[in-house]
Amino acid sequence: MYQESKKGASSGANDHTGVFVNKRQVIHCTYLLNDIGITNAEGWTSDPPTYFSA
């Protein structure tokens, strides 16, 4: 499981949680899909600097 956010912007859609299902894919809830889905992590996580915690 992960939580990612940009420092100082961890509210609303700027804070995100999900679960890595393998090295490249995550399952997460996103308003862009209007659902829970499995997507590639690349392209769905924030641009650097992004802080991850497990």
Rank of each mutant, 00 (worst) to 15 (best):
G8Q: 03
Y51G: 09
E4V: 03
S5V: 10
G8S: 03
F20G: 13
C29Q: 04
P48N: 07
I36Q: 12
M1N: 02
N34R: 09
K7F: 08
G43N: 13
T39S: 12
I38D: 07
T30A: 15
N34Y: 08
I36C: 13
S53N: 15
F20W: 02
R24D: 11
F52W: 13
D15V: 07
N22T: 02
G8F: 02
V26R: 04
T50L: 04
Y51S: 13
G18R: 11
Y31H: 11
K6I: 13
I27E: 10
W44L: 08
S53Q: 03
G8I: 02
N40F: 15
I36V: 12
S11H: 04
V19N: 00
Y2V: 11
S10R: 01
G37Y: 07
Y51C: 11
S5L: 10
G12T: 03
N22S: 08
D35V: 04
R24F: 11
N34H: 14
T45L: 06
R24I: 04
S11K: 14
Y2F: 10
V19L: 01
S46C: 09
F20P: 00
K23A: 08
Q25P: 05
T39K: 06
L33C: 12
V26C: 01
V19G: 00
H28P: 02
L32F: 09
K7E: 12
H28T: 00
P48V: 06
G18K: 07
L33P: 03
G43H: 05
T17Q: 06
Q3T: 07
A41I: 10
W44C: 15
D35K: 15
S10K: 10
K6L: 03
N34E: 11
D47C: 15
N40M: 08
H28L: 02
I27G: 03
M1G: 00
D47R: 07
C29K: 14
T17D: 03
K6W: 09
Y31S: 08
T30W: 05
